[in-house]
Nucleic acid binder design. Structure first.
Length: 705
RNA sequence: GGGCAAUUAGCUCAGUGGUAGAGCGUUCCGUUCACAUCGGAAAGGUCACAGGUUCGAUACCUGUAUUGCCCACCA
């Protein structure tokens, strides 16, 4: 398409058309790129949630990836940027449930099957929104390869991965005290918790003449199975090994010594409730303590709580405090500032309860992930994030991979019906019925008429995201496009996602999925606060596109993305817009003077000192820009080009040529080269102008850098 | 509690062992034809604070303060 220089640059009118031209070219698809391209450059897009809408973080993250892809495409690489969306487990289930609630339908009325159908409907209707928003940014991903983590082939890879781990003996089932959301009815990983400050009380309860404990949760005392003290604590040392009688329950419980106990806090003696506290559970494991569950999955007291059965935990707390008071066992209560863990989705206070979960052993996998960084097979930039990554792996716990929700990959685990109806001639084999089978397809019992029923649990959503670098590729694509090169993501998912992709790739495919991880900065508000929808501090990047164009917005993002955190300053978008105007007008000037020249000459020799100077400068800037991009120094690269274009080329050289004869070829050449350098950063306007430059038939996006 | 980072012009940020730069904003001047979304010029900083290394530190080291982020988590 031709740019119309009789008017000022209008991004609104131009960007849609340019994007369509790119789509029509097919060049987003590596298989359709022209020319010999012997080397690959592959970027795996961090999967946005299907429920998501674009925020500033996506905008920055995807602009960076687009710069990498466009640069390498122009450099002659066979470039693949793999896009997709994540089913996002509980996040999506939550959104759809909320939607249904408006129609007064609960998911329980619908039942599992109908509910998941509804989620699929929802996904078909709204799941593509975020990808369409990315297109407005100029994202040059290969949309023909777009994947969804619940696509059949992807899901199959997820199941195979689970089965692989199971067969290795790395998957186990265990009762474990987990963070449980009573509202969503699911366990949550530590990383899915949000903490909020809360004012509560610290109650001092006398367990024996010698032992008083301090607790914020007296209701859990009903499930206490020990008292723990620090073994070096002189006050209690002599009591270790003895027992006390648990008040109310009148149960004998042992006093154990454990180093996890802080001498300075409270009284130095701690009640241990393995069932309802994760740290206590670990203490319980160490001392082989019994686990007595007194709170159920709806946050009510169980039968084991005796007369408090069926009370909500808070009601039970009040009653118990009162009862203790009456018994004269409440020594004192004091105000206490604490932090309560809440569900990251619904904000409900989580309740640690023992629950049957599936775990993936992390010893071998964690070691592999660690080794990948230590051996420099994978580099994380900025480098200090390698520490974040390694620290996590140093003391990583086994990964709880099961979730009690309906939307997700159901575990490929099949349980035998309780009854056994032996097949004829197999009466003697009835004991051989396998209680549980892990298999991709529904198994049949060899010995009896009994059926297998699939587990109700689904896998943690990160379990499926962890295989994105290969689960997202067809068999043929896998051969051509695995492993990839770069992964650009935010720092908060270095452990949740990046580490898990690395060990998944190594274990399942024997190769690291990518060699470079770039952690982009976090965009904060101008006064340094986190951008978030719930705080009302978020900004919709599409507003900037509508007002000033995608190029100006991309400019603003990269212009400011020099450090880690960005305090977002809107003025930068205006600067980007002004720069667009400058590019547009300088191009008009140069191209009007060069109507007759088809291609810029390659081996130009400057005649005047101004000519020589600009050519020299251009060569230097171009070299430096390439280096900067390859080193993930995008902001530096943009500042250099900006400086060169505006202050060297426009302010000095163009003005100089007005005074001197000739030099048109050099003008034309420097402009063309500038457009190329600018293209990865500001793809729309540069492509639009390039269509006007001489007889260019080629799109700038595939022009040689 | 542990770790990481930041502190430079009114604002958002670069930067370097030898007395500081950009964008935006401000002030003044300028519309001869690429661009007033422009050009030219100017004002504006004891580079958080204290010590140390050095001939010399904003830059290197130590400490302090403030801020932010990550991880762990206190019963």
């Amino acid at each position: 398409m031709k740019a119309d220089f009789s008017k000022p640059y209008d991004p609104k009118e131009t960007e849609g058309k340019i994007y369509q031209t790119w789509l029509d070219s097919g060049y987003f698809n590596p298989d359709k790129l022209p020319g010999k391209r012997s080397k690959n450059y592959i970027v795996y897009m961090p999967l946005p949630n299907v429920t998501g809408t674009l925020h500033m973080g996506h905008a920055l993250n995807n602009t960076i990836q687009d710069i990498l892809i466009r640069y390498h495409r122009m450099k002659g690489f066979r470039t693949l940027w793999l896009p997709g969306t994540d089913h996002a487990g509980i996040a999506t289930q939550y959104v759809v449930e909320k939607d249904l609630r408006k129609q007064n339908i609960s998911r329980f009325e619908l039942g599992r099957e109908k509910f998941t159908e509804k989620v699929w409907e929802w996904k078909e209707k709204y799941g593509g929104i975020i990808l369409d928003q990315l297109k407005k940014f100029g994202v040059s991903a290969d949309w023909s390869r777009t994947r969804f983590t619940m696509d059949q082939s992807y899901a199959e890879d997820v199941f195979k991965t689970f089965i692989h781990y199971y067969e290795k003996g790395w998957v186990y089932r265990g009762l474990r005290t987990v963070n449980w959301c009573p509202k969503d009815g699911t366990s949550l990983s530590e990383l899915e918790l949000e903490y909020a400050d809360a004012e509560t009380k610290l109650w001092y309860i006398k367990y024996s003449p010698e032992i008083t404990v301090a607790t914020t949760r007296p209701e859990t005392m009903l499930g206490d199975t020990a008292i723990a003290v620090n073994p070096s604590d002189k006050r209690y040392k002599h009591l270790i090994g003895k027992t006390v009688t648990l008040p109310i329950q009148n149960r004998e419980i042992p006093i154990v010594g454990d180093i996890a106990i802080d001498l300075k806090f409270g009284t130095g003696a701690v009640k241990v409730t393995p069932a309802h506290d994760i740290l206590d559970f670990e203490i319980g494991q160490r001392h082989k303590l019994e686990t007595i569950q007194v709170i159920n999955e709806r946050a009510k007291m169980t039968a084991a709580a005796g007369k408090y059965e069926e009370l909500k935990t808070i009601e039970a707390r009040e009653k118990i405090v009162n009862d203790l008071k009456e018994m004269g066992l409440l020594v004192k209560e004091e105000k206490y500032q604490t932090r309560v863990a809440k569900c990251y989705r619904c904000g409900t206070i989580i309740e640690p309860i023992p629950s049957n979960q599936w775990f993936l052993k992390m010893d071998k996998l964690g070691a592999m992930a660690k080794q990948a960084i230590k051996s420099k097979k994978v580099r994380i930039r900025p480098k200090n994030f390698e520490k974040t990554y390694l620290n996590w792996l140093e003391n990583v716990r086994d990964w709880s991979v099961s979730r009690q929700i309906w939307w997700g990959h159901r575990l490929p685990v099949w349980f035998h019906e309780p009854k056994c109806i032996p097949k004829k001639g197999h009466e003697k084999d009835s004991a051989k019925c396998e209680e549980m089978v892990v298999s991709l397809i529904k198994p049949e019992c060899k010995y009896c008429e009994g059926k297998y029923v699939q587990s109700d649990d689904v896998l943690d959503t990160w379990f499926s995201s962890a295989i994105w670098p290969f689960g997202g590729l067809s068999k043929k694509d896998f051969e051509n496009y695995y492993p990839g090169n770069a992964l650009v993501t935010a720092r908060d998912i270095i452990n949740l996602w990046v580490a898990r992709m690395i060990f998944s790739g190594l274990e399942l495919k024997k190769k690291v999925p990518f060699t470079d991880v770039f952690i982009n900065g976090t965009i904060l508000t101008k006064d340094g606060r986190r951008m978030s929808k719930s705080l009302g501090t978020g900004i919709d990047p599409l507003n900037y596109i509508n007002l000033h164009g995608a190029d100006a917005t991309r400019f603003a993002l990269i212009w400011q993305a020099s450090g880690q955190d960005i305090r977002w300053d809107e003025a930068a978008v205006m600067a980007g817009r002004k720069f667009c105007n400058k590019i547009w007008n300088a191009s008009r000037f140069v191209l009007q003077k060069n109507t007759g020249i088809a291609k810029p000459s390659k081996a130009l020799v400057g005649k005047t000192s101004a000519d020589k100077k600009i050519l020299k400068k251009l060569a230097a800037v171009k070299k430096q820009t390439g280096k900067n991009i390859e080193n993930f120094e995008f902001s530096k690269a943009l500042h250099d080009i900006y400086d060169f274009f505006w202050h060297e080329f426009c302010d000095v050289y163009i003005e100089e040529t007005k005074k001197q004869e000739g030099g048109q070829e050099i003008l034309f050449y420097v402009l063309s080269e500038s457009l190329k350098m600018l293209h990865p950063f500001m793809p729309f306007i540069t492509e639009a102008i390039y269509g006007n430059a001489g007889e260019n038939k080629k799109l700038l996006m595939i022009e040689k850098w």
